[in-house]
Amino acid sequence: MSRSAPEPVQVIKQRRDSALEALVGGVPYIRHLGIAFDRRGDELTAILPYAERLIGNPMLPALHGGVTAAFLETTATITLAWSRLWDEIESARIDPDDLDPSDMPRMPKTVDLTIDYLRSGLPRDAYARARIVRSGRRYASVHVEGWQDNRERPHAMATCHFVMPAAREG
């Protein structure tokens, strides 16, 4: 049994990072909020850098609840889309040079979002990670946790349900 030589690590990294950038970078609303994704292997952490325009309560001050909802929903959507894309990336069926943000696989459609606000969002960076609880052919359920200074003290968590897009042809 012969094995081909493993791909150089930079080639793998570059393909993964380009795929992620194509998934995220083409969405104006994600760009507008300033959400970025940090990747470690297949694990994604969403980062929402603090900006004054994200404030919903200027007296406290606190992040807008709608910003937190959008942040968690985006984290869930991208994490889910990313997990569906992962096999294609790893098998090198995706060529990073061919990735066009306007021609990415259709995103999962959010059916509903239930969000618990556990603490007021402080005027600093926020982070979020999603866990795919169940991803079926048609539907998916994703849990997301958002935190700020302390991972053990989440400021919000949410459960999202999605309808999955039809599989791509070919």
Binding site: N57, A62, G65, A69, V111, D112, L113, T114, I115, D116, Y117, S120
Partner: peptide, 8 residues
């Protein structure tokens, strides 16, 4: 302040 919100 929002305690929880469910959006469909």
């Amino acid at each position: 302040a929002t305690l929880d919100l469910r959006i469909d």
